[in-house]
Each structure stands twice: as C-alpha cells, then as structure tokens.
Design a binder for these strands. Sequence first.
DNA 1: AGCGTAACGGTTGAA
DNA 2: ACTTCAACCGTTACG
Length: 177
Amino acid sequence: MTTDSITFNHILGQGRVNQLGGVFINGRPLPIHVRHAIIAMAKKGVKPCHISRQLKVSHGAVSKILNRYAETGSISPGQIGGSPRARLTVQAVEKEIIIAHEENPHLSAAELRDVLVQKDVCTKGNAPTVPAIKRLIGARGSPPSSNSSHHPTPQIKKMERKRLSYSIDSILGISIG
DNA sequence: AGCGTAACGGTTGAA
DNA sequence: ACTTCAACCGTTACG
C-alpha cells in the first residue's frame, strides 16, 4: 500500500498529501477508480464518513461526488475548461432525456427538450436538437417512428445546429450512433 | 461525530 | 503564439 500510494503521483511531482494522508492533485479531478470506489461503497450502504476515511478523500469531495451521482447518475466530473457557452456532461443530459421519456412517453422530442431546460439540466442554448433526442429515445427500444407527419424542420434549427456543432448535440449524435 | 457549504488556490481549454 | 475568461477541481475551514 505504502509504495503503491506514491508511484506516479510523486514521479509527476504534482502529488500533494491531504490531512487524511491521501494523495491528490490540486486543481485536478480525483482518479476514476477512486470515484468508482466511492460510488460502489455508497451502494453497499457504507456511510459517507467511513468512505472518506477509508479512501482518504476529504468528506467535502465525497459529499460532492455522491450528491452529483445521486442527481445526475454521472460519476465523471464536469467539463472543466472549454467554451464559455454552456457545455455539460453528455451523460447527464442523456440520462435526463431517458428518464423524462420513461416518465412521460407521450411527450414529443421537443417537449422533452423543454423539460431539460426546466430541470435546469441544460439551457436553451446548449440543449440538444429535436432530431438528436428523437434518435436517442428511438434507439433505446421505443419503436413509434414511421408514418405520421414529418416535421418541416425550419431553417432556424439549422442555424442553431451549426452554433451547437461543438456542443452536446454533435456529441450525442455520435455517442449513440 | 457527521454532513453541507463557502472560501481558497489551482488547472484546463476554447475564444 | 499569447492572454483572457469562465467553468470545474479537491482541500480546508466553518456552521
């Protein structure tokens, strides 16, 4: 354990030690395996304080990660640098869309998109486009599609799409494609 | 003792 | 190529 804890953290020279004796890198997210361990232990019913001591992670971080997981279901940290325009975790949005769809299967893609905005999961600016949502909910096993009237797809949508080409829309598109 | 939250110092990545 | 800026990070400290 002792030699394992130091390895590359020390080699890289960025490793710092917190009050609990755990190694962390200031300004950087915790390693993924630590996060996974936190979630796994929480699922087993381990109390947060115990998790904190066991993994040598500050209780503040444990609280934060646990809370994030409870709300979004996402283990990964949020997007750090990048564009000032809202860019949030794809997983969170994807999950929210699925949840919203399961809870309200009758809602249209546009309605689901609005729900996302209302839930503050994303904003009007970064919300995925209707086609993207349709693809997402359609790929999961809901086979409505076919017949009915196809949407006219206004030009403004095209503009938005261009603006969001770097955003979750494109990511969502390739993620589930 | 345990948990939530603000403050603090730090890094990242696009503009 | 360099600087700015806004988002997030985890630790620490306080309530």
